[in-house]
Nucleic acid binder design. Structure first.
Lengths: 232, 232
DNA sequence: TGTACATCAGTGAACGCGCGTTCACTGATGTAC
DNA sequence: TGTACATCAGTGAACGCGCGTTCACTGATGTAC
């Protein structure tokens, strides 16, 4: 009905065509936040939100996949920043690991469509693999560092910190992505459930090593019963 | 180039227009398995695979969403069957819980696009919520039954079996969905990693109760160090 | 300081496509007589 | 047993749409002289 909300854009001056680049990524993120999927965000809508015509987008991105990849980059950077901020001033490595996890799940739930495109959707044809190997690296490496410190502190058995970090990542991702995909399930309070799930993941990996070398279900069950009777 | 692979379809006889219903669902599942997403499977492609024209689909499904919902129903049923099959003859509840988890992750990794549409993608507008509350119920209830047995056996502290089941589900889902979304990560052998992750989830929840009431990171860390020194 | 000109950020219009869906229809199937 | 007819599973053609992308262009910007 009313004229489309075109921002009065001033044409970028000579050297700085790159201004638009950032604005486009931001607008895409904004639109994505209110959409059901990346498919639902069209180049036209992005152009309109920025206050520019669709062909302008192609001045800055080869195609839609390239644009979405840039968004994924931005999202991973934001996620990493949120994790670092949450762990600031937290000294004990175990507490830091938990803080990272809480921040991770919190970010995902707060920006479900951003998380979805970064961590749940299929990779675009362009090798996003290489892309987020490099990028998630920031967040992932921070987590791995905390895991390594936990190993050094004797909380976890030594061994492969990468595999352990990956395992813990699946725990955080499992909660985050399932809360996003099935928000109507009776999750309860976010912080409470995240705390429970993340603690269980860390504790569970550590405890498995206490029981023995790759214990089976029955060994786990026996150990639990023994512990419970001993402590009561 | 060559004529489309039309199956020579015989027209359904009078009472049995419903034959097509099942064939359409099966064809959709088959096409989905080779696609990147549900959007990439078109009504036209489904019709073609069944050997029928596109409007025929609408004789059996109100719209595309309804068709996809039917597929989700079928997928959940298959998943449940796979879990039950895997746990057949497994008597101890902890082992059964692990068997369920292994089967769950195995199914997801084996049928990634089916798992994606059922458990990772956003719900269609039609209230799939109600849909899969009823349907996943079969699989979910089987898991909950195993959890309850584990509680009865003293492996887990009593309390809310539903919340615990949900927590364990996030563990299985986390591994499954992350392996699907990021298959290029260094996961290692499926059975090994699934065993590790699922065991950690179960053990972790049980162990948290051993430590105390909702223990914080530092309590967990202290407990782990104490256990480790005691056992060495 | 003033003017001609090259640059290049951004435009307007259109392309071709594949999609979900609709609609009037056809013709095999089974039934009534 | 044979024929007229109602039923309804499935068809053929088309609809309108929104999409990603292209292409020849415009006109403000900054520079050279």
């Amino acid at each position: 009905m009313s004229a489309p909300a075109k921002k009065a854009r001033r044409r970028a001056s000579r050297g700085s065509g790159e201004e638009l680049h950032g604005e486009i990524v931001e607008a895409t993120k904004r639109l994505l936040a209110d959409s059901a999927s990346a498919d639902a965000v069209s180049i036209r809508a992005v152009a309109d939100a920025v206050g520019v015509t669709p062909p302008s987008i192609y001045l800055h991105f080869a195609d839609k996949d390239a644009l979405l990849s840039a968004v994924v980059v931005a999202v991973f950077a934001e996620l990493d920043a949120a994790m670092l901020a949450a762990a600031e001033g937290v000294d004990s490595p175990m507490a830091r690991l938990c803080a990272y996890g809480q921040a991770y799940v919190g970010f995902a739930v707060e920006h479900p469509e951003h998380y979805r495109i970064a961590a749940m959707d299929p990779c675009p044809r362009t090798d996003q693999q290489a892309l987020d190997e490099v990028l998630a690296d920031s967040a992932f490496n921070h987590m791995r560092a905390a895991v390594t410190e936990c190993i050094d502190a004797g909380y976890f058995a030594g061994g492969d910190p990468l595999a352990l970090t990956l395992d813990l990542w699946t725990a955080a991702h499992g909660l985050a992505s399932l809360m996003i995909a099935k928000p109507y399930l009776p999750w309860g309070d976010l912080e409470t459930v995240a705390n429970r799930v993340l603690r269980a993941a860390a504790l569970g990996h550590a405890a498995a090593d206490l029981i023995g070398d790759d214990p089976g279900p029955d060994e786990v069950a026996d150990w639990l019963v023994k512990q419970r009777t001993a402590s009561s």
